[in-house]
Design a protein around this nucleic acid. Sequence first.
DNA 1: ATTTATCCCCAAGCTTGAGC
DNA 2: GCTCAAGCTTGGGGATAAAT
Length: 765
Amino acid sequence: MPSKKRVHNENASFSFVTVSRAAPRRRLKAVFHDQENLLAEQVRLVEEQRQTQAAAAQTAKVAQEEAVRAAEQSQCTEVNERLNSLVRAVRSAQFTLPEFLLQLIQTNDRHLSSEITCFLDYHGPQFLDLLYSRRPQLMQQYTLNAVRSMGERESILEDCERIAPTICTLLRSICMSAAPSERRDQELVLATAICMLVQARSERSNISQSILCIYLLACGASRSLFEVLHHAGLSSSYSKAVRDLRGLSKARLEKIQALVRERPFMIVWDNLNIPFRVGEQRQDSKDHFDNGTTATLIPLYGVSYGQLSLSMKTPRMARLPLLQFEPGDLLPSPTQVQQLEDVMLWHIEDILLAQFPKLRERFQDRIAAFPHVKQIPVHKTEQHPLPAMHIDESSLDGTMEVLDTIVNTLSLDSDSLKNHGVVICAGDQLSVSLLDKVHDEKLTDNYSQWTEGQLGLFHVKIAGARMVANEYWGTANSLSPWSLWKVNSLLARKPLSAGWKAKALPPFRPIWDLIIQIMLPAHILDAYRRVQQDRDSAAGGKPRDILYENVRLFNRDSLILHAFGQAVKHGEIGVVMTILAHWMVMFRGTGRMPKYADALFECLLKLKHMHPDLREAFLLNWLVNLTSHPDGFKEVDLLQEHHNFWAKIIYNAKGSGRSWDWLGMITVAIFALRDVLRKVKENYKTPHNDHLERERLHTFTAARPGNEFAAPARDLITHGAMYANTARAFKTFRADTRQTVNKGVPKDVDSNDPAAANISITTKT
DNA sequence: ATTTATCCCCAAGCTTGAGC
DNA sequence: GCTCAAGCTTGGGGATAAAT
């Protein structure tokens, strides 16, 4: 026991030693002899004393409590006595007790009523607390009902009917015609009119006007429109609208700042380009791009606060992102190959059944379930957009500035960051690789300690679609009976530029629609018509049917693309990973997409070696679901792109006059374009086109006409698998084997010359 | 030419204190 | 303890300078 030890020490040191007259030796010895006994005795005495004191304190305390209890008792009996006498008085006044209480509260006697009002003002909460502690369930039920009835009181018209029945009847008789209109909700007009009248009476009752002015602001109404509607009484003034919006965003930001202190979160950012174009360029007004960055904060699903501690990240020791990898990591594993095959087979069947719903109905119980690997449970993701930053994130400095600004916006310091743990940062390939490069900036804060890059799956999907489109695009205007170009022009769709040689990247939407919506279902339906008997036609010295090979490869690759899109939609993150493992090889095979191939390789290997908790969080939050529908998942970076889309509309509406005019024109065009696109989709959704059948594309044909015009497509998996055989493969992820050797100063050189100090680098083999 | 920020004024509502 | 009015606060509107 520490206390005993302290006693021991104190007593042991309690001896005086005088230098001038030393104690007699024998006496000293005796003391020494007895010292242990003496100490034990002293310890015993001190302990005894302490016990007596404690006992005395205990008795005193008990006595005091006793007294208090007695006092309480007597007070209680006294109070009870008084209460009883009161109740007797009440009864003698011909009241029952409940009657008395209710009447007391409802009394209209001036003085009594005032007292009751005062009582409720000062002791109301206490009174309610007492009621609650007496009958919790009753009070809960009551509160719930009260809140519910408050919520129901939303209809303005109902309130009006109650408060001002005469005016309501009057207005109704004016605006309601005998025959109710089909196209117009007259109640709505009535409610609006009442709101306007009420606001004219008191400018403080302006809820409907406030809502309308926010709406106008979001639509990008001009200031003059605001003026007109405001003076008409339909909306509030422009300055109020701006004030409200500012208040709204301030409140949102405060909410986010509170949120990041109690919930784990991830951040996604993307750059936002707003073109400002002028009709006639002048020295002081030219076309220019405004580069900015928008970010969104997403609370993590399935992770508790502080669970992703910073220690889960292994410290980065080298400039290059070094990875430990084995031969098995270079290709998809056999399980993954099997998974992909299952998924592809399931999708082939699903596409057939989607075209013939009656078939699905008929064989309802015999349709196999989707081969699940690892699915994100259905949940609803919250999203909190952060203020747009006028920073160009596509540079190292910009990325650091973005991170700093976000941390400032969230008012996080190093302590709260430490409490929160690892922050997952999502973005496109460029953002993630920049984030990775920021890691070796030693001078500033070490961002790598608390960030984890997450490759955006939407951009991977775009890359995958481009790969398929470019590989099977063929040559424009060639006579080959099948190529993506051929199909595109047969369907009279908008001419595109694709293929590996094309200068511009193919637009994503049109090629996705072409491949997934139109060609894949058509091919599968056509292939179902035939039983494939031919095997690899290229084997041996047989003549090659290049078109047949192309179509088969295309079917495989587009099916993978389709499976990826579906897996994303349903939150099937296991299948997504499987496909990524395949695409990693296929991107290599193209020879033109090294960045995405590297990014996927790095991403998958990082995931393999990641701390299990962090990996789970990473995977569960790789996709978001804003609707909580089972098929409502989407990629995190797509969400950000959608934000940018809206930001552009709203921001541009408030830009300077020129851009406003310009954007006004564009937005009109966007809707027109979208309508056209929809129409095209509707018309071509189930293309009944016998081109595939006529050309017998899904059959091996030895001497096919037009074969000589077809450009053979590569089997991207085969090509990609060969990449690892090259000398410089994966060089980004391997440590630099060169070592520095100090060879000293050569003898024939002046040793005072610092430039002569020769350190040479040799390669160790 | 238009938006945005700021200042000033006004009206409604709330608080406080005097008078009854 | 109630009523009423003065004073204070808040929110809204309008004008105008600054910015774009």
